[in-house]
């Protein structure tokens, strides 16, 4: 199989979409947080917590959709805790986010071991199956790639335009963006920046939780400790690549889904004789290149990483 054969194939594009969805959800999560002026380095931990909440709930109740709900709720809860720390107590966003990720990771591993024990064969659930959309999935090429996906994927298709509409066409979206650019000015016109940032972090947490849950409810069907392995950090770079805009972020996530699908196929194709770990490093190399190239052009929200102190004049 040559390099060209790898990418000129319906299976490749379908895989790229599948791999892009969790990245896209994570990227939209980070976008919402950063638009409100908060850098959320807790995203990696929120995704992991969402993955476990989704898996454990689905395992116990047998309902995948209850798993989705649990992931959304737990993510939002961690978002609220993060908001307590960085919005109300105004702690440093970088180290607090890392702390939230570390604590969440420890607690998730602890809970998983407590609930599921240590077994040679990890417990599994039957993940979502793909649903071909009538008519649309019959379109040649585009159909099987885009419209034979999981229900969650279709929801994400709708989420991107919905978020774009919210941010750029509604008063609440304008309020959120203003808080991220200039919280003082926002307060001057009657917006409460503190409340706005708390809500933004809760929404970001819910989206990150869903991103994590997608990985085992739709993709893997079981929970592993390495299930997120840096996907949350990659989303930090994808927001920059997507210039803090939902559609551009979707493009960035798709590009990375394709990189991931490419390295997976390269591994299994056997056309290149190299240790497979080199391919695993590829998405991280691509991310590093993205931040280097984009830093020059990117315009982050002006008040990103600046705590808002209502008493400061």
């Amino acid at each position: 199989m040559s390099m060209l054969d790898i990418i000129l194939d319906i299976g490749f594009f379908a895989a790229a979409i599948r791999l892009a969805v969790p990245l896209l959800l994570g990227t939209l999560s980070e976008l919402v947080a950063e638009r409100s002026g908060v850098l959320n380095l807790g995203i990696e931990g929120m995704m992991l917590a969402g993955a476990l909440a989704g898996f454990a709930t689905a395992h116990v109740t047998g309902s995948l959709w209850l798993g989705v709900l649990a992931a959304l709720l737990l993510g939002a809860l961690i978002g609220l805790l993060m908001a307590l720390l960085v919005v109300i107590l105004r702690l440093d966003q970088t180290v607090t986010g890392l702390g939230v990720t570390m604590a969440a990771t420890g607690l998730v591993f602890f809970s998983y071991r407590l609930g599921f024990g240590e077994s040679a064969v990890p417990p599994a659930i039957t993940p979502f199956s793909t649903i071909p959309l009538p008519l649309l999935s019959d379109i040649p090429f585009v159909g099987p790639v885009l419209f034979n996906q999981y229900a969650l994927t279709y929801i994400v298709y709708l989420l991107v335009p919905a978020l774009a509409f919210f941010l750029f066409r509604t008063p609440a979206g304008l309020a959120l963006r203003t808080v991220g650019e200039n919280p003082k000015a926002a307060a001057g016109v009657g917006i409460d920046p503190i409340k706005m940032r708390i809500l933004a972090l809760m929404a970001a947490g819910a989206l990150a939780g869903l991103a994590g849950a997608y990985l085992n409810l739709a993709a893997f069907g079981s929970f592993t400790f390495g299930i997120i392995s840096g996907r949350g950090w990659i989303c930090l770079a994808l927001v920059v690549l997507g210039r803090w805009k939902p559609f551009a972020c979707a493009g960035a996530a798709l590009l990375f889904g394709a990189v991931d699908a490419f390295q997976l196929r390269l591994q299994t194709s056997g056309s290149v004789d190299l240790p497979y770990q080199l391919f695993l490093a590829l998405p991280y190399v691509a991310t590093l290149i993205v931040v280097i190239v984009n830093t020059r052009f990117a315009a982050a929200p002006a008040a990103l990483m600046e705590p808002y102190d209502p008493e400061k004049r």
Partner: peptide, 19 residues
């Protein structure tokens, strides 16, 4: 008690010291 309690304490102590 799962060993991962050590990782949890590590993260929690970081947040606690910041607070």
């Amino acid at each position: 008690v799962p060993f991962f309690i050590a990782d949890a304490v590590q993260g929690l102590s970081l947040i606690a010291v910041l607070v």
